[in-house]
Amino acid sequence: MDTLRSYQPDDLAACLGLFDENLPAFFAAEERSAFVRFLTRHAAQWNYQVLERAGQVVASAGYALGPAVGVASLCWGMVHPRLHRQGLGTVLLQARLRALRERPDIAQVVLDTSQHTQAFYARFGFVATRVVPGGYGPGLDRWDMALALETPQAPDEARPEL
């Protein structure tokens, strides 16, 4: 059974292991120090979560609000490579989008990713706003993407009375 929970400082080594397992296809080695800094200083503010399977951290991802009003940013999403294409990334993304849709102050979700995962986000409605060839390093393009969140209808607005 998989368990989604908030990141704890004891998860540092497991999350760094996930990062390292995803090199060089999904992250540039030069990004590791930024990830360490993120985990040690900002993970709580970015609502960083880990997905556990059989007591092992197998995926992680987070989101933050602002600094732009009405905008949330997704960050540092990763799944152990042996478990790619098994729905774990979808679980993480849907959990983050569900949490953000519950906030009436959030109208848009943004992220940056590579050419290797942009199609995954596009399946959920994210659209590319900018592409920077080699933006993360040689052979690793940066794709900036955005998703406009719909305002959920109240039950009485969904069906007009006759």
Rank of each mutant, 00 (worst) to 15 (best):
M1E: 14
M1Q: 14
L4V: 13
R5Q: 10
S6Q: 14
Y7T: 11
Q8S: 13
Q8T: 14
D10N: 12
D10S: 15
A13C: 05
A13W: 05
A14C: 03
A14Y: 02
A14E: 06
L16E: 03
L16S: 04
F19Y: 15
D20N: 14
D20L: 08
E21S: 15
E21T: 10
N22H: 08
P24S: 09
F27N: 00
A28N: 09
A28D: 09
E30S: 15
E31A: 12
R32S: 06
A34G: 08
F35W: 05
T40R: 15
H42M: 06
H42I: 02
H42G: 07
A43H: 03
Q45C: 08
W46P: 00
N47K: 12
L51Y: 08
E52P: 07
E52G: 07
R53G: 12
G55I: 09
G55Q: 09
Q56I: 12
V57T: 12
V58S: 05
V58W: 09
V58G: 03
S60A: 15
G62F: 05
A64H: 06
L65C: 09
L65S: 14
G66F: 10
G66P: 13
A68Q: 14
V71R: 05
S73Q: 11
G77C: 06
G77A: 13
V79C: 13
V79H: 03
H80D: 13
P81A: 07
P81S: 07
R82M: 04
H84A: 00
R85A: 01
R85K: 09
G87R: 07
G87K: 02
G87D: 03
G89W: 01
L92G: 00
L92T: 00
L92Y: 07
L93K: 07
A95V: 11
A99K: 10
R101P: 07
D105T: 15
I106W: 08
A107P: 02
V109M: 06
T113M: 03
T113C: 07
S114N: 01
S114Y: 00
H116F: 04
H116R: 10
T117N: 08
Q118F: 00
G125D: 09
F126D: 00
A128P: 06
A128K: 07
V131C: 01
V132R: 04
V132M: 00
V132N: 03
G137T: 01
G139L: 02
G139N: 02
W143V: 01
L147P: 12
L149E: 08
E150W: 10
E157A: 14
A158D: 12
R159A: 12
E161A: 12
